[in-house]
Amino acid sequence: MIEPILIFKFALAIIVFAISLGVAAYATYGERKIAGLFQDRFGPNNAGPWGLLQPLADGGKMFFKEDFIPAASEKFLFIIAPGIAMFTALMTSAVIPWTSAIVIAGIPYQVQLADIDVGILYVFGFVSMGVYGIMIGGWASNNKYSLMGAIRASSQMISYELAMGLALLAVIMMTGSLGLNEIVDHQKGSLFGFLPNWNVFKQPVGFLVFLICAFAETNRAPFDLPECETELVGGYHTEYSSMKLGLFLFAEYINMFVSSAIIATIYFGGYNLPLIGRFITDPNTLAVVGFLVFFVKILFFIFLYMWVRWTLPRFRYDQLMHLGWKSLIPIAIINLLVTAGFLILKEY
C-alpha cells in the first residue's frame, strides 16, 4: 500500500516540473516580445496567433541544429555541464510553498515538495551550486572567452551571495525560522491596518539588496557579465551549440522563474493576499486563489527582470565588484543591525 501523501507529492513534483518548464519556455517568448515592445517593435508574431507558438519553434530549431563538440574540449565535462546547470536550476523549486494546504478526503496536504527545516538555506545552497554548470562548461570548452565567462560567473556568484545572505538574515531574524512555510505564514494579515503584512514593507532596504543580488545570481542584465555578447562573444557558452546551448539558456529562464518565486515568497507574502480569507472560507478554493495570487506575483517579477534588462546598461567588471563588496555588504550589515535593534526594543 502506497501512502496517499507519497502519491500527492509525486503528482506535485510532476506538476511543479511541468510548470517550471512551461513558464521558462514562455519566458523566452515573453522576453522577446517585451524586448520588442520596449523598443517600439512587435516582437515575435508569426508563429501561431500573436507568435504564441514561438517557444515550440525555438525548441525545434535547437534540437535540429548541429551538435558540435570542440576537439580540444574535455568531452565528458563539456557534455555534463548543461545538465548540471539545468539540474541545479530545477532543484531549487523543491522547497517553495506554492499555496495553502489542500484538503483531500479530510486530510490537509501541504502544497510544497519538501517542507524541510532549513528551506531558505536549501535555496541558498542550490543557487550557489548553479555556478558549477557555468564554470565546468566554460572551462571544459577550452576557449579563452568561455574561461573568462566562467571565471567572471564564479567571482560574481561568490561576491553577491554574501550580501544576499546578509539581507536574508534580517528576514530570518524577524520570522524566527528558516522554513519558507513559516516565513509565508508570518506575513499573513495587515500592517498598520492598510498595508499588507509583507516583509517588503518591513525590510525595504533588505528587499532592495536581495533583489539586486538575485539579479546578479541569475546572471541577468545588468549583471550579465559571464555571457556578455559584446565583450566575450557568448561567454561561457561560446562553444556550445544545439540543445546543449538550449539547456544553458533554458536554465537561466528557470532560474529566473524560481528566483521570482522566492522573492515573492520571502518579501511579498507568497500566496497571501490580505482580506482574502474573509471572502473565501473553503480551503480548496482558497488554495486555488492563493496559487493564482502567487503566480501573478511571480509573473510580475519575471516582467521586472525583463524590464530591467531592457532598460539598464551592463556594469563594468570593477563596478560590479565595487557594488557587491563596498556597497551592498555594508548596507546589508547595517540593515541587519537596525533590524536586530528593533527586535530587541520590541522584546522589552
Binding site: I34, L37, D40, F42, T311, L312
Partner: peptide, 21 residues
C-alpha cells in the same frame, strides 16, 4: 535615475509601434 529610466521604457511599452508588419 534608475526609476526614471524604467519609467521611460515602460512608456515605450504602450507607444505606437514604428515597425510595419
Amino acid at each position: 535615475p534608475i526609476l526614471k529610466g524604467m519609467m521611460i521604457t515602460l512608456k515605450h511599452l504602450f507607444m505606437k509601434k514604428v515597425t510595419l508588419d
